[in-house]
Amino acid sequence: MAERAGGTLPTARVRAEATEAKVVVRGLSVRYTSSRGTLTALEDISLSVQAGEFCCVVGPSGCGKSTLLRVLAGLIPCAEGEVRIRSDGPQRPLTAMVFQDYALLPWRTVLDNVAFGPENRGVPRAERYRLAREILAKVGLSGFEHAYPHQLSGGMKQRVGIARALANDPEVLLMDEPLAALDAQTRNLMQEELLRIWAEFGKTVVYVTHAIDEAVLLGDRVVVMTARPGRVKAVVPVDLERPRTLEQKGSAHFARLYNEVWQLLREEVSAASREAGGG
């Protein structure tokens, strides 16, 4: 993976020195060359995320927010600009991703799915199962260790996805619209769960979503992106007090923040749908 070769590639994702922010993105651009010409997915993104921060990224569909996350994850190489992730423990993986469609291995039990990352890093069997059980308990999945993914509901599958990411103990937790496939009630429940889990584990999180209420409820800051090509349009700090609860969604302060983000996003969404309709 890219991080191991970080030193030799100036533009790749690298492990960074201990003095700066947890995640630093500078001048990142991603272009796809296809038969129809060059498509710029991300243009000149600069962003930094502090240790322990919950950073939400919102933007219209197709603005490249998932691409940004995949560059952070090392799944897409970054050709222009740089991505630095500060490493506080040399053995820890830089990132672990929670996927929108869960992406669990269907032939593995819940326990084996959660233990998958440590297993690949050579953690002994007893140790990784102990770790997996501990984390499963914390995400509320005790008793389901030996179930297979097809036996679980969407919300439970995503708890497994989150547990898998936490079990890998990454420097940064990446979440790609993790609740998008769930129904409204389950999504509310899971938002509360995420707040609780984040408070307990204290991870640095980069969280991509298209739901403004989710971004405002969860995030310390909300990064608003433009329609394609994706740029950072604005960063809205969220000063709602913590610990947060679902009830805060009813407050006037929440509504003000929601509106601020919505006004920023509004013209981008209509720009994006114009482009989709025209092209």
Partner: peptide, 11 residues
């Protein structure tokens, strides 16, 4: 997606 996730988790 499953393949991508597996690679991401070190397989």
């Amino acid at each position: 997606g499953v393949l991508e996730a597996a690679v991401h988790y070190g397989a």
